[in-house]
Design a protein around this nucleic acid. Structure first.
Length: 585
DNA sequence: AGGATTAGCGCC
DNA sequence: AAAGGGCGCTAATCCT
């Protein structure tokens, strides 16, 4: 294994996060001035263009953030700095670190793994400077040593931890990089039109905010409070959209004071506009945008968004006259096949908690929310969704909201957000009590997790929990909360912060992790079946195929996603989807 | 001044 | 006894 680490020019105004890694690496200002290559007898640090690249042909390479280093290398080839060569593999030690429960950043990962604290001062000093500046200031030796040390740490991290990283997870990490480079086609005309609409909406919102023209921070809560005082209106403690107090405040005063609505409009429209702009900056010459997903972005193993544009939280419909999702389109002559795992988390929860009643209903093909209503809400009629839509929505809210221990207060907002239900305080309390009484398998599962956490805490061990896939989840340093010894805290990353942890929360983490493993297993089978995944969002895949094979690909994708992994043969899964000419939902 | 944190908001 | 969770990004603010 050979570690490869590039050093490239950056400054305050020229960063990876502004452009995204691809555009940054290919930008003419990005001077690729140094590379460090270590391992298998190689120990090179110096001018990247002077390195004998073909010696790496057929070799196994590793970089810390391989998506970045491999992109920089590609940019160097495009700019005729380097000759093209093909390594056998190019792995990512940052992905490995994340899998192992270490922090992602190299300095933090090595500190957590080896207790070695390394300084990033040299790297910071290089902000806005090039190789010639380092030479002129007599810092060249230090810079070379810094780059050499980083590749050494990357190699050490790999050598000591890679044996813990299973082959299927390595394939998922590599698959994620393939998605990044493959990218998604963007309707750039639609993007521009949307931005015009949003800019107009933003200007309109700013017109309605009295202090906006004066140059004061438009969204500042402090400025808002001041203004409220001058016009004699009370000010809310928070402007959060789901804060009860704030909702009432808005209801009461927004007629009389239009600036109240304008603040919220301004914030939301501006965030959406920034998202459009971020996508526009990342579109490549061929009209595609790299799909920046981060392997193991969450400690549950889920992927997260990355690199400036998060494809996992695109708005689902039109906002302020602009609709972003449909601007992600198949390349001409192709279609999207979009399929998701139906109610994957409640299915996994029933399976983990051995809720036999629910499991047999699901195996018989009954819709999940209806099965819940029959088992615990007294429904004895026919198809619930058609015959009693209100009860169906309540069943959905109960299933999605109550499986992880939330109380009445939280359920109130969960029910509204997930099922559009407006329930009273007392009603929520009753629902929570009744749900817990009639779902003893799940509440027993919370208690079992609570008990195991307490056991690990007593033994002063990390809390380890074996998942059905064979991987082990880890919560670090469990123990009583110093501020409230009746509560427990634990961490999710080695050396990371600890936070409140109890059975319901552990249950949620485990369910999310198992659902992720189910989905990840299907991703590899999709790729093996030759179905090219363009990107994915937790339980949803977007595949691009020739228009003519859309229907066939849809059936095959649904079949693959509905088939459980080998380690979960009795988990009842379902998947649904459609063939589309743009991203939707 | 620049990095870190918080508040708010989008999604699953 | 009670307690939903997981993310990333922008703007504002805090902190060094």
């Amino acid at each position: 294994m050979i570690a490869v680490d590039f050093e490239t020019y950056y400054s305050r105004a020229h960063t990876v996060s502004d452009h995204g890694p691809w555009a940054y690496a290919h930008h003419p200002d990005t001077d690729i001035y140094m590379v460090s290559v270590r391992g298998e007898g190689m120990d090179y640090v110096g001018d990247a263009a002077a390195f004998n690249w073909p010696t790496l042909a057929g070799k196994d390479l590793v970089s810390h953030n391989a998506a970045f280093d491999a992109t920089v290398y590609q940019a160097g080839v495009t700019r005729k700095m380097f000759p093209a060569f093909t390594p056998r593999s190019w792995s990512c030690s940052a992905d490995l670190a994340a899998y192992c429960g270490l922090p992602r950043a190299l300095a933090d990962a090595t500190e957590a793994a080896f207790g070695e604290k390394v300084s990033k001062l040299m790297r910071n000093w290089m902000s806005g400077k090039r190789w010639a500046d380092a030479v002129a200031k007599g810092k060249d030796k230090e810079l070379l040593a810094y780059a050499r040390r980083d590749s050494e740490l990357c190699l050490k991290l790999w050598t000591e931890h890679a044996p813990l990283w299973p082959a299927h997870e390595r394939r998922l990490s590599a698959h994620t990089r393939a998605l990044i480079w493959r990218g998604v086609n963007i309707d750039t005309d639609g993007l521009k039109a949307g931005m015009d609409t949003l800019r107009a909406a933003k200007d309109a919102a700013a017109q309605g905010i009295p202090w906006a023209a004066g140059g004061e921070a438009v969204l500042s809560l402090a400025v808002l409070r001041n203004y409220c005082r001058t016009v004699g209106v009370p000010a809310p403690a928070s402007m959060a959209k789901d804060s009860e107090e704030c909702v009432q405040w808005e209801d009461q005063y927004s007629e009389q004071f239009p600036f109240i609505r304008a603040i919220r409009d301004y914030r939301r429209v501006n965030m959406l506009l920034r998202k459009f702009e971020g996508i526009e900056r990342r579109v490549r010459e061929d009209g595609t945008m790299p799909v920046n997903l981060k392997y193991w972005g969450a400690h549950t193993g889920r992927w997260s968004g990355d690199a400036g544009v998060n494809l996992q939280n695109l708005p689902r419909g039109e906002m302020y006259g602009a609709n972003l999702r449909p601007l992600l389109r198949p390349t001409p002559g192709k279609v999207f096949v979009i399929v998701d795992l139906s109610q994957i988390e409640p299915r996994v929860l029933s399976w983990l908690a051995d809720d036999m009643g629910m499991l047999s209903a699901l195996r018989a093909g009954m819709p999940l929310y209806e099965a819940h209503a029959r088992a615990t809400m007294g429904w004895t009629g026919g198809k619930l969704k058609d015959q009693n839509p209100d009860l169906y929505r309540l069943a959905k809210a109960r299933v999605l909201g109550l499986g992880y221990g939330c109380g009445a207060g939280k359920f109130k907002s969960v029910a509204q957000a997930m099922a559009g239900l407006v329930l009273g305080e007392d009603e929520c309390d009753k629902v929570v009590r009744a749900w817990r009484r009639t779902n003893p398998d799940i509440t027993a599962y919370w208690r079992a997790l609570d008990h195991q956490l307490a056991g690990a805490s007593t033994r002063r061990n990390d809390f380890l929990y074996a998942l059905p896939s064979g991987r082990e989840m880890r919560w670090t340093r469990p123990g009583p909360d110093p501020e409230d010894p009746h509560r427990m805290i634990a961490g999710t990353v080695k050396n990371g912060p600890r936070s409140g942890t109890w059975g319901g929360k552990l249950c949620e983490n485990v369910v999310q992790a198992v659902a992720r493993d189910v989905f990840a297993d299907a991703l590899l089978r999709l790729e093996a079946a030759g179905l090219p995944v363009i990107w994915h969002v937790h339980d949803e895949v977007i595949i691009e195929v020739d228009t003519a094979s859309g229907a066939e690909a849809l059936a095959e994708t649904i079949r693959i996603l509905s088939t459980p992994p080998e380690w979960a043969t009795h988990l009842p899964l379902a998947a649904e989807g459609s063939v589309e000419n743009a991203y939707t939902k």
